[in-house]
């Protein structure tokens, strides 16, 4: 039997005063990176809020590994555009928070947090307070906190949206490295087409509000991807195609 998708969304609708999401269906297989692109304010964040269970959907189903779960809060690693690190906690304590909320003991949580920081190149900043970090470093720390939350599915809501182009490319590679090492499934929203193509296995294009899926495109660029790939013919071709859709 075929393995069910990691995350399957079927006919999802959300109304919140007005209709925000209309009949969206898509699926994400285990280990995939899927991007959702669409114009600003089209309801990408609402979609994530519904998936993560902060918001109730009106219609449709959300399945994880083939079964519906009503209590989804705490099921995903969720990250926002702003790093939302706690200014009163040092970097390692912020990362540790994910483990703590999951109910791990302090000592164990600390060991795990420190391991994670060492593994992903943030150990030197472990004792900094977030306000002493650059924007890119903050997002790295926020990403590690999301991972520390110990979920195999990440919802990343325009995580690099407020970074400059150079930092953003560095973080793309950083994310891909984490993804590969930890075998994560990632769903990612962005309004940057190149970012979506570079990172993903599949791109879903959303319409303006109320958001529906216009189309999906499979990105068959080989992995591991390098920054230079963004100038390849194939890449540019996909980019052109997506642009015409938006």
């Amino acid at each position: 039997m075929k393995k069910p998708p990691k995350l399957g969304i079927k006919n999802l609708s959300v109304t919140f005063e007005t209709e925000i999401i209309k009949n969206i269906s898509f699926k994400v297989d285990e280990g995939e990176i899927v991007s959702i692109i669409g114009p600003s304010g089209c309801g990408k964040s609402t979609l994530f809020n519904a998936i993560s269970g902060i918001l109730d959907q009106d219609k449709g189903s959300i399945e994880i590994d083939g079964s519906t779960e009503d209590q989804r809060q705490g099921r995903f690693g969720y990250m926002f555009q702003e790093p939302l690190l706690f200014p009163w906690l040092k970097v390692w304590e912020n990362v540790m928070l994910g483990f703590e909320i999951k109910g791990l003991e302090k000592k164990q949580a600390k060991t795990k947090a420190v391991d994670l920081l060492k593994k992903f190149d943030l150990f030197r900043q472990a004792n900094f307070y977030p306000d002493g970090l650059s924007g890119g470093m903050k997002q790295k720390a926020a990403l590690l906190r999301t991972i520390a939350f110990n979920s195999d599915i990440l919802l990343l809501d325009e995580p690099f949206g407020s970074l400059d182009a150079i930092t953003r490319s560095a973080l793309h590679l950083y994310l891909l490295e984490i993804w590969k090492k930890l075998k994560l499934t990632i769903i990612f929203t962005t309004h940057d087409i190149r970012e979506a193509i570079f990172l993903s296995d599949r791109v879903y294009v959303l319409s303006k509000k109320p958001a529906t899926v216009i189309t999906s495109i499979k990105i068959d660029l080989s992995r591991p991807r390098k920054i230079e790939d963004q100038t390849s013919e194939k890449f540019v071709e996909i980019e052109r195609k997506l642009m015409s859709l938006l």
Binding site: N49, S52, G53, I54, Q73, G74, R75, F76, Y78, F80, E82, L84, F86, W88, L89, L97, G98, E100, I101, F149
Partner: peptide
């Protein structure tokens, strides 16, 4: 947004108070 983040993590009201509101 921080409250939203903690809710998405499935934190309880008590945890939210202790971990966020108090500090």
């Amino acid at each position: 947004s921080i409250l939203r983040l903690l809710k998405s993590m499935g934190a309880s009201q008590k945890q939210i108070f202790k971990l966020v509101k108090l500090p």
